[in-house]
């Protein structure tokens, strides 16, 4: 047996495999590592190391614009991921728990449209669309950004929820109905608890996607509605300061935290289901 295993084709045995892997990882992570390192730089250069300090974190934290942008980003991400996850859950139920109907593939494509349409197109479309609503209603609050974010977050929430629903044995819901559970009770007592990890995972993914969006936000936001990413973009246009490095690193930390939780959740699904 061992003999045969050794003879089997393995991509890891191709010449240069290790080298190529190393180059890929270096290209991916070296820039990020540089940013993280220089966020701890004592001097105000982004290219010259002058010793370790947390000064730039303090500067960023005390900057009122950064504070506002951070709160705004979190607020938008919370609302947008909440709305997107609710819609995505309903969409996932609608596409997995109904009889196959003509055009169901089209529906699937339509739900995932934001993944395929270039973001800049959506951004321009939303800008024009919201501009006319702004004129008509006179409202220019955060709701536009929240709705725009919710719209492009739907597929990110939809895909893990749908995957979870498809992986779930339909016979469980039939069994619940057999045991006197009404359709609503079946959903609340059987479907929802079993899909919950998928919903939480979808919400977290949507949250992260909303948190770092630049293009659509840049087009849709009104004056004074900078989110953290658009604020950073604005700063970089003027001068590159290690403050941006510090904010990037903090954002990176938060994202890693959420994505780790996402993978733990979806990973656990596989074992229990």
């Amino acid at each position: 047996m061992a003999e045969r295993v050794r003879k089997a084709f393995s991509i890891r045995r191709l010449p240069g495999f290790t080298t190529v892997t190393m180059i890929c990882f270096a290209a991916l992570y070296a820039p990020i590592i540089v940013i993280v390192l220089y966020s701890f730089n004592a001097g105000d250069s982004v290219a010259l190391w002058e010793g370790f300090s947390l000064d730039w974190y303090t500067v960023a934290a005390q900057n009122e614009q950064v504070q506002d942008a951070t709160l705004r980003s979190l607020l938008i991400a919370l609302w947008a991921s909440g709305i997107a996850t609710t819609l995505a859950t309903m969409a996932a139920l609608g596409t997995t728990r109904t009889a196959k109907f003509p055009g169901s593939t089209l529906i699937y494509v339509l739900i995932n449209q934001p993944l395929m349409v270039p973001e800049i197109v959506t951004a321009v479309a939303l800008l024009i669309f919201f501009a006319s609503i702004k004129v008509a209603t006179g409202y220019s609050g955060l709701a536009y950004l929240i709705l725009a974010h919710a719209a492009f977050c739907v597929p990110f929430a939809y895909l893990p929820i749908r995957a979870r629903l498809e992986g779930m044995d339909r016979v469980l819901e039939i069994a619940a109905a057999d045991l006197y559970a009404t359709p609503w009770q079946t959903f609340r007592r059987v479907t929802l608890p079993l899909v919950a990890p998928g919903i939480v995972a979808g919400a977290m993914l949507a949250f992260v996607i909303s948190l770092d969006d630049v293009i659509i936000t840049e087009f849709v936001k009104s004056a004074g509605q900078d989110t953290l990413p658009t604020y950073m973009l604005g700063q970089l246009r003027r001068a590159v300061t290690p403050e941006v490095n510090a904010i990037s690193t903090a954002l990176l930390g938060l994202t890693i935290l959420l994505l780790t939780a996402f993978f733990i959740l979806t990973g656990r699904n596989d074992k229990s289901a």
């Binding site: 069994a175 045991l179 059987v190 079993l194």
Partner: peptide, 18 residues
């Protein structure tokens, strides 16, 4: 099914895992 006083033992058992 939920209005029928009839219960089923499924081939796959269909126990609620949670």
């Amino acid at each position: 099914p939920f209005k029928r006083p009839v219960n089923t033992v499924f081939q796959s058992y269909a126990l609620f895992p949670h």
